[in-house]
Design a protein around this nucleic acid. Structure first.
Lengths: 349, 349
DNA sequence: TCGGCTCATTACAACGATGTACTGGCGGGC
DNA sequence: GCCCGCCAGTACATCGTTGTAATGAGCCGA
């Protein structure tokens, strides 16, 4: 009842190898390999005999031998700051599916946004067993990335162009400008930017730049008082910023009628911080995020956001990587992820 | 400026091996291995000479050789229904960190809740290159799981006890009873259960059982009209159920003053569905979820939920796996994940 | 009937690392 | 002064698989 293969195998038996199957089937190991690999000319009768023993012994090719012989594992690594951030979780999910359709497996590494760990991963630590790497660096600068390619690598994210590595870029300048522009178009004039970190990584820097461009484009003077600072891009920090902003608004220390958050989880935190302090969204303050993570459609109010097409990112990243693995001599290529505005409740009617 | 290792290496050069380093350092390959492995007695002078060449050539041990020789990869697989579900994303994140502290790497597979894929993963497909597996099956039944262990495996989740495999159990009967009991303690008398699927997997079945136990314990008669059915445990389906429930309430077709959702994303969807239809939470309907995912603290209203201690699950799962790898002859063990109620706004004051 | 040909299969070696068994040298104890 | 034992290092074999080159079997046409 149920499964029905190789259940008769002994207890502490060594895992069967091609040799075992070959012996049982009365052929050479190479023939077994040929059958399992699907290649070459094998007489139907022989194939059948081999397959029967494969089944009987429960043989499965072992990765080690194959890897050693062929020099490839069929495994690609994905390195992201944190897999439990919705944006990266979704990206990982899509990448795993895309990889599956190419017959590849994905290993996930977390860098925790730590430069040191990003460097390690880029250098192929601790052990080299992936064929390639999809790296979504947070803190690593473009300059460092030049020295990266110790293994076929695709970078995902912002980072100065011109780096001679395959990349799926995100035009965060345009993304932020679109978000800020939307608030301005809604008539907001005191638009703050949430998510400025003590040390700006490329993503933050570009979004800051896009935000500024939108403001000056609308004839508004830059005002550093509109930059809301946080230690990290988390819900917690967003909520803290929201509570602080509410205080400042009530005390007249701040004059803000719109906030562009550098990403959605910050925005979602902000919503809660504001709500807890009785600030109404979007009536008092309109809010726009960036990413369009799943939960943004379910917040109250639902979150207007600049969607980054993660399906496209995942697909392109894998395509670039697969083609590079096939031909290491290709020139470095770059694709850009599409983005678009998703208008919901948080930015008003 | 910046990186400073092995940059002088040629272009299309083959990756250096122990042999190359040995040759350059004037020692035997085994000595290089000893130095890199940190083991054995090596004279400081020799060690230095070897390390210098390691640095100069940019040598990194290759996984294939090591794996083949030692029979282990230092990689453990994690198979979950979907990495982009907050619960599993968080679990994965914690497991990756825990693994790192053991010097292990994690590969992530997604089963998409598909029994067939769960079976494949359990059987070690497509290629065997992980030392062990942490499997969080959704649809696979306990009966099938008996036949699983084709590689050292730790099961995470519900599933009938008695299966001779290492497990980190979740007592979903108690979990659901706690959630439902909370609603009853708050004075709700028409408590519905959201998340009943056409075919109940173990998790759903246990939560249904716990829910029923709580109701009958409070002297309430079971009422199948209180079972809210959904195709899947997603925000979308939760929202649809919320909208439908709101309709029914308004039309007098339903009498419900509390809902226990089988998990948080369902509950979060439900909140939105109810809100969209003007049903107030918790005034009209109190809502309780299960899981305590990060976003549950940030919804409006924030979500009361039964927290499952994922930190504990991840830690225990890895501990069980590591100890099993060290000693395959250990008897099957079982740990149970702690859970507790987190009271927030959605269940009233 | 035999050469020439194709197809199926095999023997061998190699991928990179390391466990085992061994060698040679040195110092200490009796 | 001799032997034992330890230390540093090496030679060899091996993990499982598969590319390459070689072998053998069968078939066709001349």
């Amino acid at each position: 009842m149920g499964g029905a293969s190789g259940m008769i195998r002994g207890m502490a038996t060594r895992r069967p190898t091609v040799r075992d199957v070959a012996l049982a089937a009365g052929v050479s190991p190479k023939t077994v390999s040929n059958v399992v690999g699907g290649y070459a000319h094998v007489r139907p009768g022989t194939r059948e005999r081999v397959l029967k023993q494969v089944e009987a012994l429960g043989y499965r090719p072992q990765a080690a031998g194959r890897h050693l012989r062929q020099g490839r594992t069929g495994v690609v690594a994905l390195a992201v700051p944190a897999i439990d951030m919705p944006y990266f979780g979704d990206l990982a999910s899509r990448l795993v599916r895309a990889a599956r359709s190419h017959g590849l497996t994905v290993v996930v590494e977390q860098t925790d946004g730590d430069v040191e760990r990003e460097r390690e991963v880029a250098a192929g630590l601790p052990l080299r067993f992936a064929d390639g790497l999809v790296l979504s660096p947070l803190e690593m600068s473009a300059a460092e990335l030049v020295a990266v390619p110790d293994m076929p690598t695709v970078l995902v994210g912002e980072h100065a162009a011109g780096v001679p590595v395959d990349r799926v870029g995100i035009d965060s300048v345009a993304v932020a400008a679109l978000g800020a522009g939307h608030l301005l178009a809604r008539g907001r004039r005191r638009v703050a930017l949430l998510g400025v970190k003590p040390v700006l990584h490329d993503t933050a820097a570009q979004r800051l730049q896009g935000y500024r461009a939108a403001l000056t484009g609308a004839g508004l003077a830059p005002d550093d008082g509109l930059l809301l600072r946080v230690p990290d891009w988390t819900r917690e920090d967003g909520a803290a910023a929201g509570a602080a902003l509410a205080d400042d608004l009530r005390a007249g220390r701040a004059d803000v009628d719109g906030v562009l958050a550098m990403n959605d989880v910050l925005a979602l935190g902000l919503l809660q911080g504001l709500r807890g302090a009785g600030v109404r969204v979007p009536e008092d303050v309109a809010v726009v995020g960036v990413d369009d993570v799943a939960e943004s459609a379910y917040s109250a109010p639902s979150l207007t956001t600049v969607a980054i097409d993660r399906a496209s990112v995942a697909r392109d990243a894998l395509e670039l990587l697969v083609s590079r693995l096939a031909d290491p001599d290709l020139p470095p290529r770059e694709r850009v992820a599409p983005h678009h505005l998703v208008v919901r409740e948080s930015s008003g009617a």
